[in-house]
Write a protein that binds this DNA or RNA. Structure first.
Lengths: 203, 203, 203, 203
DNA sequence: TATGAATGAGACTTCATTCAT
DNA sequence: GATGAATGAAGTCTCATTCAT
């Protein structure tokens, strides 16, 4: 394998491992030696790949956002009714939270919270652009097709992502009384009704 | 003023000041000397009031939750339609976020994120019980009156609180293109539709 | 009760309580608040009786030495053979160690070890003079009567007190396989032979 | 020199230096920065070698006990009368106390006194096993050969070590009126008589 | 005399980062 | 590229002592 490819392979290994640790223990409770040890690599060598802990955190967010964004993109490209798109989104989000929890938890526990870390270089959500973009596509497609009410992107975005994040959080905390997946339909119904253009009698 | 009352007054001053700092800079970026300095008090004396940084953080969450819970309680006790209750909730939440941002931000930036800090002593959301209770009352009242669909408390809870938290977060980040208060109606409409028992044609 | 007497009574209570705490936990692991709490007294008031932690420690040693010294004096004044005096000394020392362990342990764990605390004001063993004096009397009486060999006071002193302290230490550590009192005769025999003027064949 | 060996060399340097400081000033009066400064090393680096002050203290005791144990072992292996073995023991102990006082003083001023530090990991005198073992060998050899009276190991142990420690202590305190070495014969005589199997007229 | 809140110096420990090998 | 010993600033917490009440 060429030099360059080996380095890239290592880079990805570091990102994945560090992502897991950060997501589990939080940014400030994960030390560089922790990460190095989990990788079976020396501390010094880590710095050959990332110039600082902060930069590593940003790279992880970029990569993670790209991965999650692609999953949503697949849904967007499906030729199914919008209510089913929402259901797929919920299901897919929950599935990631269960199978690759670090992807969602990194977002919830590292990105959303340690704003100071992402201040420079992630202005205006650059670092999570891929996810934001796909949600934007989902919503504006629906509006364009007359399926969703026309509304500010921000309310639509939080209306969708807020509950998703919330359910995953509660699941992580172990307070849900059923498996996460059992909430898919109920939550989908809420999201659908929230966004749908269908008339509401008292609305 | 008696000794006891003075001490209690001081305790509250510490809680309020520390809450602001934690909410602004995050738990790990706020040091005990920072708090002491903001209070014009010695570091050692802080420890006469709270036995550790963690314990202080928990007390803040308890107090904060009690304050916010009472605001919601006022709404719950109003004799107005449920859609208006939701609107009041959104308005009230946004108002707090604007006037006393530390109350909401402490929750978003400290409690939700630094789980390790609240592990012992806040099991099962004891520390935020007051807020959770009032939301629960709001929802189950609505269900009882046939105004809201019957659904799992958890989905209802995240459906309401997720978007609220999300909007405040975006406002903090400065990405919204209008003042936060301008989103009240739009968001209320989403929440109302999401919970409402009114028929949805395709639902 | 007159003012003066009340104060003296309190002084003794402080000395006894502090002695116990110091003996149990060591000088540096016992805080002034610890002592105040054990006394049900305020920290500030403690300083009305002793001007510093060090001074308190010295007063304790003086008092303790006086108490132990008196016990030995009683033995010295008995009209019994010297071997029996040694046996009484061992028995008495062990008895104190069992019934009022703080008296011996204060000496072993506080006085002998934290020399810096007793540097000023306890020069040349002033603080434990009473015990030293009585041991000196015991030995020189024996020498005078021709029962003990004439030897340097220091070797005689350590020959007697070293093993006594050692046995109490081992007992505290819980490593002895019999009750402390069961070692009285064996140890007495050693001490007697060590000091005795009787001829030793190979000596 | 290989990395590994350098690290080990450093480890020993730390142990020796810290031993001296602890022995001179006591455990609680010796700070980590004190030790680091004496070593010309940074505080942080000390923690690359020992994970806490307590652990360092235990390692020192182990090493020190090993060194002293070996000195006694040499005596045990000599082919000389037991009285001479005792004399050699006394002489050797005093010699160490004079030339490498930290070895004995660490034992007297740190180990014997700060029991809380050695509670975990040094149960049952594990940390000073080497010295205890050699004394045990000396005594039981003598008993076996019929030179010493048969007696409980504990009384024999304290009968020997108590006076040795006592003399060194008095020497440290500067109260002896002759050089420490001048007491060798007198003390040997005491120890010999204390342990010897030879008949004692009144015994 | 009695109280206990307040002080502030200082203790132990952690950790991102560097750099000689 | 890889190693890990070394740095040193900074964090949390402790505690003898004081002093206004």
């Amino acid at each position: 394998m060429p030099r360059q490819a080996l380095k890239e392979r290592n880079r990805m290994r570091i990102i994945r491992t560090a992502c897991k640790l950060f997501a589990e223990k939080g940014y400030y409770n994960t030390t560089i030696p922790d990460i190095a040890q989990a990788l079976g690599m020396s501390v010094g060598n880590l710095y050959n790949y990332f110039e600082s802990k902060e930069e590593l955190a940003k790279e992880i967010m970029l990569t993670t956002s790209r991965i999650v964004g692609e999953r949503i993109k697949v849904i967007n490209e499906k030729n199914i009714p919008f209510k089913e798109k929402l259901r797929e989104l919920v299901r897919s989000f929950f599935e990631i939270a269960l199978k690759e929890p670090e992807l969602i938890n990194y977002f919830l526990r590292v990105f959303l919270v340690n704003r100071e870390v992402f201040r420079e270089g992630c202005e205006g959500f650059t670092c999570v652009g891929d996810v934001v973009t796909e949600i934007m596509v989902l919503v504006s497609d629906g509006v364009e097709k007359g399926v969703f009410r026309n509304q500010s992107f921000f309310t639509a975005f939080t209306t969708v992502m807020g509950p998703l994040g919330g359910m995953v959080f509660l699941n992580n905390e172990g307070v849900l009384d059923k498996p996460l997946m059992d909430y898919v339909d109920e939550l989908t119904e809420n999201l659908w009704r929230a966004l749908s253009a269908e008339p509401s009698v008292n609305g």
